[in-house]
């Protein structure tokens, strides 16, 4: 929206300028053209309807007589005005861009941590200490808090707090990208060991079968593990219970209808 407005005012002006340039070639034609163009160029911001009205009036009445000098003066005045507006628009635009740029810079500054902390972080990363992901999260949180801070004073207080934390070496800055790579490699290594020990083709039995086999060979036979331990096969037991309930309900419903 903001950007569109200056352009809208800019295009008519440049159109005028083109007409101006054509002026020296044939003065009469230029005069005519200027006369034609005058109402619209006089007020660039004026609505188009008025412009059309003016055209209608012009069509109805015969053209007024004008002396050459007055016409020339008028034309020059007009030209000057057009140039002025063009220049003013340009300056306005420049100023606006400048303001925006300043705003961007300031925003960027606001997002960044203060210099003191950044320095601390770089020195801390040189002293390689073991870090933990939990700690890292804490740091991120603190950074976020920092972003939300607006008042200058409160910001200072926060800065001091961060500094005191870093002095205790309770966290270490690190690049998340490296950690991801390392985690994925560790996962792959774990998957390899899991697959080679417990994967397909490793001839594993289940704990249940193992225990029942042991029970079979005992001199004193006991009940199976799932009957002795309540924690065994909780999901299966629940499923069986639910199935039984549903089955009974279905039966009762069927018998009720009959």
């Amino acid at each position: 929206m903001v950007q569109l407005r200056p352009r809208a005012s800019c295009t008519p002006a440049s159109a005028e300028a083109m007409v101006d340039e054509g002026q020296p070639a044939s003065e009469e034609a230029a005069e005519h053209g200027l006369l034609l163009g005058q109402p619209s160029s006089g007020a660039a911001a004026e609505p188009l309807e008025e412009d059309e009205e003016g055209d209608d009036e012009f069509d109805d009445e015969a053209p007024e007589e004008l002396t050459f000098a007055s016409a020339q003066a008028e034309a020059k005045e007009e030209e000057r005005r057009v140039r002025e507006t063009a220049r003013r628009d340009k300056i306005l635009l420049k100023e606006k861009r400048k303001r925006r740029e300043e705003l961007f810079i300031e925003q960027k500054k606001r997002k960044l941590l203060p210099d003191a902390i950044l320095e601390k972080l770089t020195t801390a990363s040189q002293i390689s200490i073991k870090k933990s992901p939990g700690k890292l999260k804490e740091v991120n949180l603190q950074k976020k808090n920092e972003d939300h801070e607006k008042g200058n004073d409160s910001k200072k207080a926060k800065v001091q707090k961060v500094q005191s934390v870093s002095q205790n070496k309770s966290y270490v800055a690190l690049r998340l990208k490296d950690q991801d790579l390392r985690d994925s490699r560790q996962q792959a290594a774990k998957a390899f060991i899991q697959n080679s020990l417990y994967g397909p083709g490793t001839n594993r039995t289940t704990v249940n079968k193992f225990l029942s086999l042991a029970n079979k060979r005992l001199p004193v036979k006991k009940a199976a593990a799932q009957f002795l331990s309540n924690t065994w096969g909780v999901q299966k037991k629940q499923n069986a219970k639910r199935f039984k309930r549903r089955w009974m309900f279905r039966k009762m419903k069927a018998s009720g209808r009959i």
Binding site: Y198, T205, V207, F210, L211, T231
Partner: peptide, 11 residues
């Protein structure tokens, strides 16, 4: 026995 029941599957 309760510990064995929670270990990974044996061969």
């Amino acid at each position: 026995d309760d510990i064995i029941a929670q270990l990974p599957p044996p061969i």
